[in-house]
């Protein structure tokens, strides 16, 4: 997905001389081609996230479409006030593109895990928040938002959900609807792949969101009468669902403790019960609690 970021940036920069990349000393080699094509429009500013965000606000005020790119925890958690005030309060548009969300840097430990970014950004007035689960979703969402004058947050993932889904900014996707089902599984980002593996043969509905804010109220309201289980390896989706309309939702995701394990993304997901087996177990448990057998008449879109 990070390569897609590079390809999309090159494509857009050709027609937009106001597109400027401000990097926090990551992805520089990957963007060599961009640097060769547009040497003045990729600035590797330094390992200074507060300044990166403030400067992006200033560049926006000067008429540019700045894109800040660095590692998720350092720019969202450390520089939260810069995002809040310099971008959101001052209504200065910039796009923050991060990598290392959730447990993408699993092997680096808790200092490099970042599961709060989506929710932190969601809470800020005026901020748009996206968690694409595929290259196609990244390309469409980023291209839609990067120059719209609003502050935006786009999280690049290390893996993908593997599906070719329709993409429209602010719109969720109905993945599976089961006639008579009283349980709906909601998820976001690449974790959809595990959710689908876990639940494709269960009598549940599955709804998917690549855009956390603005949230697709229409899609959620369609299933508001069912019990909802939010399966997500971050905070943000559960809160967005509860903030959107009155629903009976529960969360299968992160515990209230640091994840002090190393290994791979898959290792961490398995430990947290967010691999396909863990998700299936959680969903089946919920189904049994409800006594909800529903119909096996599944229709997958």
């Amino acid at each position: 997905m990070r390569r897609q970021f590079k390809d999309t940036a090159i494509r857009l920069a050709e027609h937009d001389d106001k597109l400027v990349l401000l990097f926090g000393d990551i992805s520089v080699f990957l963007f060599s081609e961009f640097k060769e094509l547009y040497p003045d429009r990729l600035l590797n500013i330094g390992i200074c996230e507060n300044t990166l965000i403030s400067m992006a606000a200033g560049m926006s005020a000067a008429g540019f479409h700045p894109i800040v790119h660095t590692i998720a925890p350092f720019v969202t958690e450390r520089s939260y006030e810069q995002v809040k005030l310099d971008l959101c309060y001052n209504c200065l548009g910039a796009t923050i593109v991060t990598c290392g969300g959730s447990f993408d840097y699993a092997w680096d430990g808790a200092t490099h895990h970042c599961y709060t970014d989506l929710e932190l950004m969601r809470m800020l007035p005026g901020m748009e928040v996206m968690q694409p689960g595929s290259k196609k979703e990244f390309d469409t969402l980023f291209s839609t938002c990067y120059n719209n004058g609003n502050p935006s947050y786009v999280r690049i993932a290390a893996d993908e959900h593997g599906l070719d889904l329709p993409v429209e900014f602010g719109k969720g996707v109905l993945i599976k609807e089961t006639r008579g089902a009283n349980l709906t599984v909601a998820t976001a980002g690449p974790l959809l792949g595990n959710v689908l593996s876990a639940c494709s043969d269960l009598p549940v509905n599955i709804i998917y969101f690549h855009t956390i804010k603005p949230f697709d109220r229409d899609l959620l309201e369609r299933f508001a009468g069912t019990r909802i289980i939010v399966v997500h390896d971050a905070f943000g989706l559960f809160e967005a669902i509860n903030a959107t309309c009155s629903v009976k939702a529960e969360y299968h995701g992160l515990p209230d403790e640091f994840c002090c394990y190393y290994g791979t993304l898959e290792d961490i997901r398995r430990k947290l019960g967010l691999d396909a087996a863990g998700i299936r177990c959680a969903v089946e448990t919920t189904l049994l609690q409800d006594g909800n057998k529903g119909s096996q008449d599944a229709q997958t879109t």
Partner: peptide, 19 residues
């Protein structure tokens, strides 16, 4: 909040120079 204006000013200055 202190420590913000200088960074935004730097971004504006960079923008004007690039333009």
């Amino acid at each position: 909040s202190l420590g913000h204006g200088i960074g935004v000013a730097a971004g504006m200055a960079l923008g004007f120079k690039l333009s």
